[in-house]
Structures are given as C-alpha cells and as structure tokens.
Amino acid sequence: MSEITELIGKARGGDPQASERLFATLYDELRRLAAGQLRGDPGMRATSLVHEAYLKLAAHGAIEVNDRGHYFAVAARIMRQIVIDHVRSRAALRRGGDVHIAPLTTTALQAVAQDRDEEVLALDAALGSLAEVDPQLAGLVEMRFYAGLELSEIASVQERSERSLKRDWRRARAFLQRELTAE
C-alpha cells in the first residue's frame, strides 16, 4: 500500500501504467469491502466503502492528505466497475444465498441488491454518453452515485463550492434522465 501515494502522483502526471496499477490496487481493496457490504456485514453500516478504504489507506500513511481529490475520483471509477462487474456475475451471488444490504450505503449498491440490474446497466451506458461530451460531469456522477459521496464531501475533496456542484449535479441528472428515457 505504500506505493499508492507514489502511484497517485505518477497517475496525475499522466503515466498510464501508474494509473492502471493504482486502479488495480484500489480495486482489490474496494472489492473486498464491497463484498462485505453485500453480505450485510454489520460493521459497514453508514460509512461508505470508499471512505472506509480511504481511511485504511490513510492510516497506513499510504495516502497524503492532498491526494484526496484524485483518490476519490479514481475510487469512484472503481466502484462503478465493481458494481457493473457485480451485476454481470449475479448468478454467482445468488447461489450465495440471501442478499442483505445494510441501510444507507451507496445508492448503486442498494440498486444492485434490489436486483435492478437492467436499470444499473442502462445508467452505466448513459453515463458513457455523458462522459463523451462532458467527462468532468460524468466524474461527478461516479463520485456521487457509485462512491456514495455527498455533494458536500465532493466539494471538499475537489475544493469547489457546493453550490456549483449542485448545479452540475442537476444538469448531469437531467442529461442521464433524458438518455434513459429517450427512445
């Protein structure tokens, strides 16, 4: 885990290999936590996975405070991947027995637990379209929907005002909604 800060630095500098390794490292940690969540691990209530992972990494000194913005962006992307992977391999999960979700976790994971696979996949596709015209907006949706961050939290890690994020969210939401309902 000690390499994470370094990887974040390199990734931010545009090193594609570092980005990939960062993604892979965080992916494992988050998937582990998400698995716990989907099992209904009571210890996971109310704290979002991404925060949990962040705190773990930070406790190990693997992440410096000023890396938070980049960390959350990457983590949100990863959560999106985890959710989609999860939906696609549902059969395996079903064999595992009851799916029980602790309340008040990320919206995306709740949707997955409610078997709303088609909606989740459709949203993912719509998000892809959004990323084509406005990647920053798509990133915001990832952070909010997949990583479960509140706007106020995103405002803090991105050092932006909540007011402007609210406006962005509203616009992103309208875009996605239009994509989802457009025939």
């Binding site: 409610q114 909606e119 949203l123 309208a174 996605l176």
Partner: peptide, 17 residues
C-alpha cells in the same frame, strides 16, 4: 426543453430508492 423535462421527472436510481 428535453433536459428541463428530464429535470422534473423522478429517477428512482439516481435519487435513491
């Protein structure tokens, strides 16, 4: 107009279940 309409419509997934 389409966007504004979408803005007014509820979205179960995005707004939470």
């Amino acid at each position: 107009r389409a966007l504004l309409l979408a803005d007014d419509a509820p979205n179960p997934l995005l707004d939470g279940e």
